[in-house]
Simulated scan of single mutants.
Amino acid sequence: MNRTTAYATTSAVAVPEQQAAPARGACGARPAPLLRDLRERGGHTPHALLFGPRDLVVITGLPGSGKSTLMRRTVRGTRIDSQDTRDRWAARMPRFLPYAVYRPLVRLAHYAGLRRALAAGKGVVVHDCGTQSWVRGWLARAARRRGGTLHVLLLDVAPDTALEGQRERGRGVSRYAFLRHRTAAARLLRSVEGGDLPEGSGSAVLLDRDAANVLRRIGFTG
């Protein structure tokens, strides 16, 4: 595990592009995953994170941690956010109809849109709720097939802050669902901090609220 922790305040950090997995029988191994910890620096962190042109980036964290806000403000290129899909469906549905009724259709539309974006072959930033590890596995395989790398951006926000974020946006999840998200997010954070990145990922970036607020661009080179 390569670990990098020091950055200039106004720099744009290019996350190194990794080579695709070697063919069966080929010599050599993939480069060691890279961990960048940008937390607890009072905002003295990069203004941009840049990735390879065929890379995939997953942004994960608790509901209300600011994933969608960060994506809308910073992503230069294709972004796939399940919240965008939900909002589009909600605008078409009768207001009295509970979201739970059409949630399966929203999820189906979200994953269909993600599949189309992956097929285009360009860099994509994806919103991840953190509880469905199979999505990260799917993205890691897709990145390898297209000659890119999967990168994980993890928003490390306290549960109370995330709950406040839900109240501010006027939309939250149930207590049971939030506990499930909290458990999954804590497990992922402990794993990454210990140097065990999600399977198939080439790097992880840890962000607190200050580091996320400083970011102005998440994009792709080339």
Rank of each mutant, 00 (worst) to 15 (best):
Met1Gln: 04
Thr4Gln: 15
Thr5Gly: 06
Thr5Pro: 11
Ala8Gln: 15
Ala12Glu: 15
Ala12Thr: 14
Val13Pro: 08
Val15Leu: 15
Pro16Arg: 02
Pro16Leu: 02
Gln18Val: 13
Ala21Tyr: 04
Pro22Ala: 14
Pro22Cys: 09
Ala23Asp: 15
Ala23Lys: 13
Arg24Lys: 08
Arg24Pro: 00
Cys27Gly: 15
Gly28Val: 05
Gly28Arg: 02
Pro31His: 07
Ala32Tyr: 07
Asp37Gly: 06
Asp37Leu: 05
Asp37Thr: 06
Leu38Asn: 03
Thr45Lys: 10
Thr45Ile: 05
Phe51Trp: 09
Gly52Glu: 12
Gly52Ala: 13
Arg54Trp: 02
Arg54Asn: 10
Asp55Leu: 09
Leu56Asn: 02
Leu56Pro: 01
Val57Pro: 04
Gly64Pro: 03
Lys67His: 12
Lys67Arg: 11
Lys67Met: 06
Leu70Met: 02
Arg72Gln: 11
Arg72Asn: 12
Arg73Asn: 09
Arg73Val: 11
Thr74Phe: 07
Val75Met: 03
Val75Leu: 01
Arg76Val: 14
Arg79Glu: 06
Ile80Tyr: 01
Ile80Leu: 13
Ser82Leu: 10
Ser82Arg: 05
Thr85Asn: 02
Asp87Tyr: 02
Asp87His: 08
Ala90Val: 14
Tyr99Leu: 13
Tyr99Val: 12
Val101Gly: 04
Tyr102Gly: 06
Tyr102Glu: 03
Arg103Asn: 12
Pro104Lys: 10
Leu105Ser: 11
Arg107Ala: 12
Leu108Lys: 15
Leu108Ala: 15
Ala109Glu: 06
Ala109Met: 00
Gly113Tyr: 06
Ala117Asn: 01
Gly123Lys: 07
Val125Asn: 06
Val125Asp: 05
Val126Thr: 08
Thr131Arg: 15
Thr131Cys: 07
Gln132Leu: 10
Ser133Gln: 15
Trp138Ala: 14
Ala140Ser: 05
Arg141Tyr: 00
Ala142Val: 03
Ala143His: 00
Arg145Ser: 08
Arg146His: 08
Gly147Arg: 10
Gly147Lys: 07
Gly147Ile: 09
Gly148Ile: 02
Thr149Cys: 10
Leu150Phe: 08
Val152Ser: 00
Leu155Val: 07
Ala162Pro: 08
Glu164Gly: 06
Gly165Val: 10
Gly165Arg: 12
Arg167Ile: 02
Arg171Cys: 09
Gly172Val: 01
Tyr176Thr: 13
Arg180Gly: 13
Thr183Ser: 14
Ala185Phe: 11
Leu188Arg: 09
Gly194Arg: 10
Gly195Thr: 07
Leu197Cys: 09
Pro198Thr: 07
Pro198Asn: 00
Gly200Val: 01
Gly200Ile: 00
Ser201Gln: 00
Ser201Thr: 01
Gly202Cys: 04
Ser203His: 02
Ala204Ser: 11
Asp210Ile: 00
Asp210Val: 03
Ala211Trp: 01
Val214Met: 12
Leu215Val: 01
Arg217Gly: 07
Ile218Val: 13
